[in-house]
Each structure stands twice: as C-alpha cells, then as structure tokens.
Simulated assay, not measured.
Amino acid sequence: MEKVISDKTKSGHSLFYHLRNNNWLYRVISVLLALGLWYMTGREDVIDKTIVVPIELLNLPRDLVIASQFKRNIDITVSGPKLAIEKMNSGSVTRQVSLANAQPGTFVINNDTDSVSAPRGISVLRVQPASILLSIDKLAQKYFPVVPVTKGEVAAGFQLNSLTIEPDGISISGPETVLSQIKELRTKVIDLSGLKESKQSQVPLDLTPDIVNLIGDTSVTANIKVSAKTVEKAVSGVEVELVLNGKKQKVSPARADLLLRVPQDIAKKGVDLHKLINLTAVVNPDGETANLTATSKGDNGLKIEVIGIFPATVRLLSPPPKPPGDGQAAEHNSGKATPARGGDSSSPKR
C-alpha cells in the first residue's frame, strides 16, 4: 500500500515538474486570469441610459402639410454596452415615421419599444412619450396685400404726399385652414409724428405665430414722401429788363405777371416774392421776340414752383439789326439767355 502511495506521489511530482518545465502551468493560469478579467470588464460596460432620438417623418404627400407644432424628439431608455450606447447617442438612430397614407385631419404616432431599431446588443426598455399627435392639412398658396399702420401727424406746415410699401404684397404657402383666416398683412405702427422730410425705413410686419412659423419674422420697406404745404401766389408787375450784347433792351410789355406755388408758411409771413425769383429771357430766332422764364433766386432753400408767366413772350422794341445774308448768325445769337431783373412792384391781390 505504501508503495502505491509513494508511486502516485512520485507521479504527481513528476507531472507538476513536467508542466512547470514546459510553461504549461503559467499558460493555464494566464488564460484563467484573462477570462476573469474579460468577464469583469464586460459586466462593467453594460449600462442603462436615457437618450434623445429625433423623429424622422417620411413620404408626406406633396399636397399635404403638417399644420401644428409637435414634439420632434422622443426619450428612450436603453441597456447595453457603454461604447455602443454612446455611438447610438450621437444621432445615428432615428424614429422613422411614414406618412404615405396620411389624410387631412389628426395623425397619431404610437411609440413603443419596437418603434426604434436599436443596434445589436442594445435593448430598448422604455419610450416616452407613448404617442404624438400631428395635425395634417391641405397645402395652399395665397397672396396677401401689405397694409401700413400709422399714427401721429407730420409737422405743422407739412403734408404727407404718399406712403408706399415694398413689396406691397407677399405670397405664402401653408396650411389651408391657417391661410383662410387671414385677409391681409399689417405692418407694425409707423410713427409720423413731427415728420418734416421724406424718409425710407425698414418696418417689421405684425404677424400671428402661425404666419411666423411659415415665413419667419419679416420686414418691408416703407417709402414716406413728405413736403411743405404750398399755396398759389400771384406776383404782379414784375419789370422786365433785357440785356443783349451788353446793351439794355426795351421790351413790350415792360412788365410780367407770375403765378407761383410757394410754401404756405412763406405766404403767411408776407415775404416779398420779387426778391426770391429771377427772370431770364431767351431771344427767339426771329430776333424780335423773347421768351421769359422764372427760377428761384440763388440757393435760398425754398421750393418755389413757377406755374405760369403772363405774358410768356415779350417783343423787343429796338431789335438789333440782322447782318445781311447771315440768317445763321442771327439764329446762333438767339440761343443766348440774358437775365431780366424784377422791379419793385408789390404783389397784387388775386
């Protein structure tokens, strides 16, 4: 018996010695340690996490449109390897919804754990919200005029000539039920208070939230034309002095009457209009008559409009002699304009 035990002991020692000398023991231990480490590491990588997944709407018919705001993301709780979930969280997964069979009305998107196709090795545990409602409507296009909204009055002595908007209308595409409730687009309030000159400015439109969702915050250009109020004023007995080739010429009639349009405040102040205008004459080709024109004198900053001159033509009492056979010379000289100075006559009552 002792011999048998002794033989087995020797055999075990021999096997251990053989394994040790051939590095098999170390190899087995290394494999066992690697398996244990892999098992522990794999267990640590498995996590539960809630991530946001975008909703992707597909195949919506061209004649339909989504008419309401809706939740564009869902929250899903998943379980799986950490690295795989982080990759999934980067936006590589979406909740796809086909709208190929959608009709005008309410469309319900039902969300469950089978709604999202998760990568292999990842389980979907929960999905929130469980359902999403879409309002589907017919797609329409409509043209809306843009109407300016104003407040206040221009400064005293001035008038608003025009207020135009560019563009004066806008075409909008969107849900039929939304567009049917609107007749026009209005601007935010344009303040005209105390305005004394023309101006151009950008004005935002006063839009409802539904229209803002379709075209965004939109502005238009307001062109405001303002001018001083004017009145017609007659100026009588303006003496005409015509100087031709350095010599004073007598004309008939010797005086002319003017009809002017002047700023209202100038007329009220009783300003002598003779001092604000110039008369000039252009000799006609016949050398015997001249046409009269009137302009505002100097750069006085006043806008004076000449409505008429009476008479418009005067006759030279002593016309210069024409060179014999030189009609062209007379015609050449007729194009020269010479100033005529107004007299001191007071303005007549109309």
Results as ranks from 00 to 15, higher is better:
V231S: 07
V231R: 08
V231M: 05
E232D: 15
E232H: 10
E232Q: 15
E232T: 11
K233L: 10
K233I: 00
A234S: 13
A234I: 13
V235F: 12
V235P: 06
V235L: 15
V235G: 04
S236C: 15
S236E: 08
S236N: 13
S236A: 03
S236G: 08
G237R: 09
G237F: 02
G237M: 05
V238W: 09
V238A: 13
V238F: 12
E239V: 12
E239W: 12
E239P: 03
V240M: 06
V240E: 00
E241K: 01
E241Q: 06
L242H: 09
L242C: 08
L242Q: 05
V243A: 05
V243E: 05
V243W: 03
L244H: 06
G246S: 04
G246V: 03
G246Q: 03
K247G: 07
K247F: 09
K247Q: 15
K248D: 01
K248W: 01
K248P: 00
Q249S: 11
Q249N: 09
K250W: 01
V251T: 07
S252P: 00
S252N: 10
P253D: 01
P253R: 12
A254K: 13
A254G: 02
A254R: 12
R255L: 11
R255Q: 14
R255V: 15
A256D: 05
A256E: 05
A256M: 10
A256R: 10
A256Y: 13
D257A: 15
D257R: 15
D257N: 15
L258D: 08
L258P: 10
L258S: 05
L259E: 03
L259F: 02
L259A: 05
L259T: 02
L260A: 12
L260M: 10
L260R: 14
R261A: 15
R261C: 10
V262M: 06
V262A: 04
V262E: 06
P263E: 01
P263S: 02
Q264I: 11
Q264G: 05
Q264K: 14
D265I: 04
D265V: 05
I266S: 01
I266Y: 02
I266R: 08
I266H: 00
A267T: 00
A267M: 06
A267L: 05
A267K: 07
A267N: 12
A267H: 08
A267Q: 13
K268M: 09
K268I: 08
K268F: 04
K268H: 03
K269Q: 15
K269G: 06
K269P: 00
K269I: 00
G270D: 03
G270S: 07
G270I: 07
G270V: 07
G270Q: 01
V271W: 02
V271H: 02
V271P: 03
D272E: 05
D272K: 11
L273M: 14
L273W: 04
